[in-house]
Design a protein around this nucleic acid. Structure first.
Lengths: 201, 201, 201, 201
DNA sequence: TATGAATGAGACTTCATTCAT
DNA sequence: AATGAATGAAGTCTCATTCAT
C-alpha cells in the first residue's frame, strides 16, 4: 500500500523497464520497428511476455518513451558539451550547439538513425507537450533575447537551421552521402553561419 | 499467338495493375503502410487476392514501384512547368525548379506525405539504380556545366539545397510548421538563393 | 466473381461450416461455452484456425447461430409430430405441442441442456427478430383465433404455459428433479390443462 | 497467542472477504461472470491480488459462496415479511411466501438477475448440500404436515410452484415480458392458487 | 496476513501466401 | 489470367496463479 520509491523492489522494477527499453532500442534499429515483435523484445530482455504489459501499453507506447528519452539525452549532452552560457551571442550558441549535436550523432549512427526515423525530423525544434523537464525551445529563445545582434523572422530562422542540420546530418552520418560527416561538418557549419548572417537585421 | 502489347487483354492487365497501385496509394496514405494489409488493397481494388501476386512480389515491392512512379511524375512535371532550358543559368534553374516543386507538392499534401515517408528525404538527389528512363541528377549536372557562374563543391551544394528544400517544405506543407507554405515559400527561395551565392566561386 | 451456390466449392464450404457448428455444439455441451476455446473447436472440426473466422465473427456469433438452428429444428419437428392442423381447438394444440416438445427434448438431454443454457428460458415464446422463416408466435396465435373456446389474457396465458413447460421440463430431463420426465410428463400436461381451463372465458 | 474470533484482526479479515464478495457481486452483474477477471475484482475491492487467494479457491468458488449467501437472504427475508407461522394453512403459506418473494425480487433487479443466472432456476426447491444453517425445504414440509387440507404429490406440486414462480418472475422483472411484474403479480398468484386447488385431495 | 511484481500458458485474431478450380 | 477458400504461423494481449518480501 505504501509507495516506496527507493526500495529494492522499486530498483528491480526500474531495471526491468530499462532492460525492455534497451532490448527494444537495439531491435528497432537492427530490424526496424515494424519487423520487431513484442516476443522478440521480451526474449532479448530476458523477461516474461506479460511483464512487457506491466510497463508499456503496447509497442507504440514503448517507442515514444524510448524516443523522448534518447532525444532529451542528446539535447542535454550537446548543451553541456557546447559550454553554452546565457551571455553568449545567439550566432555563437547556434554554431556551437550544432557542432556538438553533429559530434554526438556522428559518434552514434544507431542513435541518429533511430531518432530521425522515429521523430519525423522535427524533434529538434518542436515541442510536443509530452516532454517533461526540458524545454529546448524556451532555452534557445532566451539566448536569442539576450543576444546583441537581432534577427529577422527568428522562428523561421530557427526552423531553417534545425531542419537543415537534422536532415543533412542524417544523410551524411548514415549513408555517407554526399560525403562523410567529418568532411561535411565544416561546410555545414559555414553554411549555417551564412544563413544566420542573411537573417541579421 | 503473336505478342501484341496493346491488345485488349494487355490493357485489361494494365488496368488491374493500376487498380492495385491506386488502391494501395490511397490506403498507404490513409492508414499508413504498416497498417495496410494485402486484403485491404485487393478489396479496394476490387480484385481477387491471388491476383495481387500476379503483379507484385509483396507489399514492399508494391510500395517501391508506387514511390518511384510518383516521384518521377513530380520531377518531370516540375521541370516542365519551370520551363527549364539548357541555356539557363544554374542559379535560375535551381530557383525555378524549387519553386515548381514547392507548388506541386503544396497542391497535393497526400503526395507530399507519401513521398517523404517512403523516400527518406533523399529522392531528389540520390540515384538508387532502380530508376529507369529518368536521370534527374544528370540533367542538373548538365545545366551546371553550361552555366556561366561556377560554384565550389557543387555536389555538396546540390545536396544542401535539396535536403533543405525537401525537409522544410514537408514540415510546412504537412504540419504548417513554422508557417504555412504560402508564407514560407518566398523566404525559403530567398534562403536558397543566399546559399547559392555563398558557394559562387 | 460469379456467385454460384451449388458448385462443388459451395458444397465444401457448407460442409466446413457444419463441421465447425457440430464440433462447437459438442464441446459447448461437454465443457460449457466458457471453457471451450476456438482452438478446441477447430481442432475437433479438423480445420485450420483461420478458417473459423471465414464463417463466424467470434465464439458468440457461432453460439447464436447454433442456438437458432437447433431451436427451429425442435419447433418444426414438434409441430409436425403433433399433427397440428388449423381447425384444431387451441387447448388441444397446446397440449399436443407440449407433449411433442417434451418427447423431443426428453430424447435429447444434450440438446435440452444446450437450448436452456443458451436461450435463457425464453426461446419458446419470444421472437427476437433475428429468426428467418419461422414465426412460432404467429402460428400459435392463428390457432387461437380459429379456436371456438376463447381465453382471457391470451398473451399471459401463453407466457405462463411455455415458461412452465420449459422450466419444469428442463429440471426433470436434465437433473431428474423432482422425478424423471416419464413420470412427470402426465402430471405436467394435466397441470397445463388445468391452467388452460382457468383462463377460459 | 489466544484464538479470539471477535478481535480486531478477525473483523478486519471479515472486512476484506466481504469487500471481495461485494465487488465481485457488482462486477458479475455489471459485466457478467465470464467477463470479470480476478484483477477486476481485487481492484474494485481495493485489495492486493494475492489476498484473493487467501479467501477463495478461485472465481467459481467465490461465485458459489456469493450465490448461496444471497439466496439465503432472500428466503429468510421473505419468510419473515410474509409473517409465516406454523399454524397456517399450506395454501396460505405458499401464496404469502410467493408474494413476498416477488416483492423482494421486484425491488432488486440486479439480485434477481444474479440469482437466476447463477442458480439455474432450482434454488428455491433444491438442496445442494453446500448450504449451512437454512433448510428451506424442511421448513415448507413442516407446514404441509400441519395443514388441514391435504395435497396429492406434494413434492411435485412444490416443484411446479417454485419453477413457475421463479421462471415467470424472472422474465417479467428483468425483461418486462410479457408485462411488468406489478401487472403480472396478481395473475401469477391467482394461477398459483388455481394450481394448488388442482392438487387438493 | 497481506502485498503486488512477475510469470508464461494460452486465448483471440490477422494475414501473407498457396493452390485447386 | 483470375479467383477466393484454406491455411497455419505469428502476432498481440489477458489472466490466473505464484512467491519473495
Amino acid at each position: 500500500m505504501e509507495k516506496d520509491n527507493s526500495s529494492k523492489t522499486e530498483l528491480k522494477k526500474k531495471k526491468k523497464k530499462h532492460s525492455l527499453m534497451d532490448a527494444a532500442f537495439e531491435l528497432f534499429t537492427e530490424q526496424g520497428f515494424g519487423n520487431t515483435s513484442i516476443s522478440d523484445i521480451v526474449e532479448r530482455a530476458k523477461v516474461a511476455k506479460g511483464t512487457f504489459y506491466l510497463y508499456f501499453k503496447d509497442k507504440y507506447d514503448l517507442r515514444t518513451i524510448i524516443t523522448v528519452h534518447k532525444a532529451e539525452h542528446v539535447f542535454l549532452k550537446a548543451w553541456e558539451e557546447a559550454g553554452i552560457k546565457k551571455e553568449m551571442e545567439f550566432e555563437d550558441v547556434v554554431i556551437a550547439l550544432s557542432s556538438s549535436i553533429i559530434d554526438i550523432l556522428a559518434k552514434d549512427k544507431t542513435l541518429t538513425f533511430f531518432l530521425v526515423k522515429n521523430l519525423s525530423f522535427g524533434v529538434f525544434q518542436r515541442d510536443d507537450g509530452n516532454r517533461e523537464g526540458l524545454d529546448f525551445h524556451a532555452m534557445v529563445h532566451e539566448i536569442l533575447e539576450h543576444s546583441e545582434k537581432k534577427y529577422r523572422d527568428p522562428e523561421i530562422l530557427l526552423f531553417f537551421i534545425f531542419e537543415f542540420l537534422g536532415s543533412a546530418s542524417y544523410s551524411s552520418i548514415i549513408e555517407g552521402v554526399p560525403v562523410p560527416i567529418a568532411e561535411l561538418k565544416p561546410k555545414l557549419l559555414d553554411t549555417l553561419q551564412g544563413i544566420l548572417k542573411m537573417y541579421e537585421c
